[in-house]
Each structure stands twice: as C-alpha cells, then as structure tokens.
Design a binder for these strands. Structure first.
Length: 206
DNA sequence: CCATGATCATTA
DNA sequence: TAATGATCATGG
C-alpha cells in the first residue's frame, strides 16, 4: 500500500489532464461501457487510480484525509458549467442528530477535497476528458462555510423534528439531502453539493 | 444484501 | 436548462 498525500495525488492527476478517461479505464481494467452495461461510477474509480490510490469502490474515505470527487461539465453560453450536482457523503440519521456541522463527515470531507472536472459528452458517454484538477481547503470562518453550515443545521433540525423521510432535495441553499438509494427498494440519503456551490468552488480554486 | 461511486429520467 | 428523485454496476 502506497502512501499518497494530497499533493502527490494532484500531481498524478495533472499528468492526465486532456486525456481520454475511457482509454485509461481500459488500461486499468475498469469496466466502463464495454460490457454493454454502464457502470455509472467508472469515472470516479479511474480517477482514484490515476491519483495513485489503489482503492476500490469500498467505503467513502480514500484512506487519507481528503476526498477525490469528479464533476461533469458542459458548456452553457460559452461558459463551462457544472452539469450535475455532486455527491458529498452519505447521511447517517443517527450521526446527523448527534454531530454538529464541524463534527460531521460532511464537513470532514468538504474541507479537504480534490476536484476533477470532466467533460461530459452526452448521455451514456463512452469517453470523457479530464478537464482540470483543483484542490480546495475550507476555513471554518469562511463566509461560504457559514452558509453551508446553516443548511446543514436546517436539514439536521428537520430530521429531528419531522424525521428522516421528510428530508428532500429542496432543502438547503448550497447543499441538499437528496435520495440516493441502492435502487432496489431501499432508499437512503446523501448530502449533495448544488451546482451553484460546485461552480463557486471551482472559481475559488482556480 | 448494502454502501458507494455518479449518472439517468422526468418534469416544469 | 435546471432541479429533484430514482437507478445501476461494483466489491466486501
């Protein structure tokens, strides 16, 4: 098991900017689209490997103190805009009730992330280029963080007051508690970063 | 079987 | 286009 610091991970990723991720996925034996079935998580897996993490799709933490995330981008009026929201982490109802924002997994991951912008080529895209790599550290007194914390507190209060099932993607200004089930009846929830937040993060990190 | 990766489908 | 909810492939 190699030790990969965040800096090293970023440098590793930067070597691949502009390259076709699908080709790299094949080199590393990651199923993308070849079997006829789409693995929606393949980009994330490729990125983890490219960063030097020999991780699989196990649990959330990459073993270190940072998170590796990828976001699809597409062009809107000459501007590169995030196409989708970004999953941050799963919501554990018990932990959400007990922990404040700065004790939460959500914050732990958010404060030290590595973002990968990936070009989106339409649905069922078979290829994607790595557009950009950015790292970002949040400070606890960051203005943006205060607002995110407010969203967290709002969602937390709603969970306690109305229950887990009352949470919806409508809640929150910067982050939301969307459904993210296994797709077979069971549904859980996860924190998602709204597009506006993703965009802001990239502007800040640039 | 479930948690995790992130995208897909539908609606406005 | 944007927003919200639902879904799939993968490995332990």
């Amino acid at each position: 098991m190699k030790i990969v610091t965040r800096t090293v991970a970023i440098n590793n990723l930067k070597k691949h900017i502009g390259q076709d991720l699908r080709k790299l996925a094949l080199q590393h034996g990651i199923t993308t689209y070849e079997t006829g079935k789409q693995n929606k998580g393949w980009k994330g897996l490729v990125l983890e490997i490219l960063a030097g993490l020999e991780n699989n799709v196990s649990k959330a933490p990459n073993g270190l103190s940072y998170e590796l995330k990828s976001v699809s981008f597409h062009n809107v009026k000459n501007e590169l805009t995030p196409k989708e929201t970004m999953a941050i982490t799963m919501i554990n109802p018990e932990e959400l009730k007990k922990h404040s924002f700065f004790e939460s997994h959500c914050w732990a991951k958010l404060k030290s992330m590595v973002f990968c912008a990936v070009m989106w080529h339409g649905q069922n895209s078979e290829n994607a280029e790595l557009l950009k790599v950015a790292s970002l550290d949040f400070a606890e007194d960051d203005e943006l963080i205060k607002e995110i914390k407010a969203d967290y507190d709002f969602i937390r209060a709603k969970l306690i007051k109305e229950g887990f099932g009352a949470l919806t993607g409508k809640d929150g200004k910067w982050i939301q508690a969307r459904t993210k089930g296994a797709g077979h009846g069971s549904t859980s929830r996860a924190f998602y970063a709204r597009i506006s937040l993703v965009k802001k993060i990239f502007e800040t990190a640039s």
